[in-house]
Design a protein around this nucleic acid. Structure first.
Lengths: 239, 239
DNA sequence: TGATAAAATATTGTTAACAATTTTGTTATC
DNA sequence: GATAACAAAATTGTTAACAATATTTTATCA
């Protein structure tokens, strides 16, 4: 196992940094469900003390990104089919409420901002930078939540977004169908511009169903090298 | 300050126990927003090590029940007016979705179970045991969520329920108007029995507005003795 | 070979001691 | 008395050493 020291002694990482790195790795599908997360290994990887890692793992467990078993450590969570379904169902509810709230007080500048995001996303996609496109696609949903202005709804959507990749990887297999369709994002922005709540919701609903419909049990995936997976990665590519 | 040793050396408390004790104290309005939570004090109170308390406080901070400032410790959270409004708005959305989901597959036994809970709540109220009535009233909402069968929705409702008392105490003042009206609970169960989603939602909406409408800034509250507040209390009175 | 038991190793969990910081209290000066 | 500077105490934050548990390896025997 050459999983050690590859990234040791990097720049100073704080608790928040380590947390975000791991969250981002999950979001990017680099960290797959079931992967064992050993404390010393991670500590070396990030060049921090074990206590720090310990706190981070606890927090990740609390937000259901990792499973923690007493005396047996932590692994990247493997949500059940049921949890996946509940997560998607709830996402439809939350995103629907976000649209309704947002359209209730949407201004021209909001629509313009969303338009710009769409362009960036489209551009990245055409450039073949699919990883960036994926990130921007997620940012689109986040931005809708932010614009809606309800901090609790935003919080919950972010929670769902963080957990969704694990459901997809556990039950939908590889990196095949997990991307938002730009076309549908456009239709949503159009509906918002027209203050057409009904259409916006309908499109969003359809949009989310495209992914959910494919959930089914899909066993096993080979584990991989942690040091490789958690390598350099800027967190939050919305810049 | 005789806040020490009053409860020291009690039965063995685990992390989960301490967490629940404090959560319950918040739910029961015994612990008011702004109260300082010192680590050694709590450790003595529950007869546990400081490290344990430390973990619990972190978890409570994560679920927004306490505010933690670096080097300056933890206090019971004081949610802003905005957060309170967002919380209530989200609660309407979530409870609405719960009703819709539940009515989608409600069976006779569900309605009967809810009826029994109503009776118990009513009884406690008539007996003058308002604290128990309050608890049962909360349990009613929890039970709706459980019956709906969506674990994520349930999780979010529980989160909202945990945070709500802090909003009420911070912005609504004393223990005046914070109780659910049994009458409205009954109307909700009736609507469920008739599978009348529209009415159920409407009543619930009204039900929640009764509280929210009264939010406004209401400054200060005198702090009190911790040892007193966190004394004996069975957690989960739904028995 | 295969199964079982024992030892060695690795991993997680806890704690007490220490360090860093903030808060409180005291004194001195005006 | 009020203010500032300093010292003392209290509180929070970190860590390294140890304990407990789980996992892997080795040894033994049928």
């Amino acid at each position: 196992m050459a999983t050690k020291n590859i990234k040791s002694g990097q720049a100073k990482f704080g608790e928040e940094d380590v947390l975000r790195q791991i969250e981002q790795a999950v979001l990017d599908h680099r960290l797959v469900p079931g992967t064992k997360l050993k404390e010393v290994q991670l500590a070396n990887l990030f060049g921090v003390k074990r206590g720090l890692i310990r706190k981070v793992l606890t927090r990740l467990a609390h937000s259901r990104l990792v499973d923690q078993t007493p005396n047996r450590g932590a692994t990247v969570a493997k949500p059940s089919v049921k949890e996946g379904q509940d997560l998607f169902a709830t996402r439809r509810i939350i995103e629907s409420a976000i649209l309704e709230t947002l359209i209730g007080h949407a201004e021209e500048k909001h629509v313009q901002q969303l338009g710009r995001m769409l362009d960036r996303e489209q551009k990245a996609y055409l450039c073949g930078d699919t990883e960036r496109a994926l990130g921007l696609s997620v940012d689109f949903h986040r931005e809708l939540a932010r614009m809606a202005g309800n901090s609790v709804l935003e919080e919950y959507l972010n929670d769902i977004i963080r957990r969704t990749p694990l459901v997809i990887l556990t039950h939908l297999g590889g990196d095949e169908h997990n991307r938002c369709r730009n076309q549908e994002h456009e239709a949503i922005v159009d509906a918002i511009a027209r203050r057409d709540v009904k259409t916006a919701k309908k499109v969003m609903h359809q949009h989310l169903l495209h992914i959910e419909g494919k959930i089914k049990h899909k066993p096993e995936k080979p584990p991989a090298d942690l040091a490789e997976l958690l390598r350099p990665h800027s967190v939050g590519q919305s810049a």
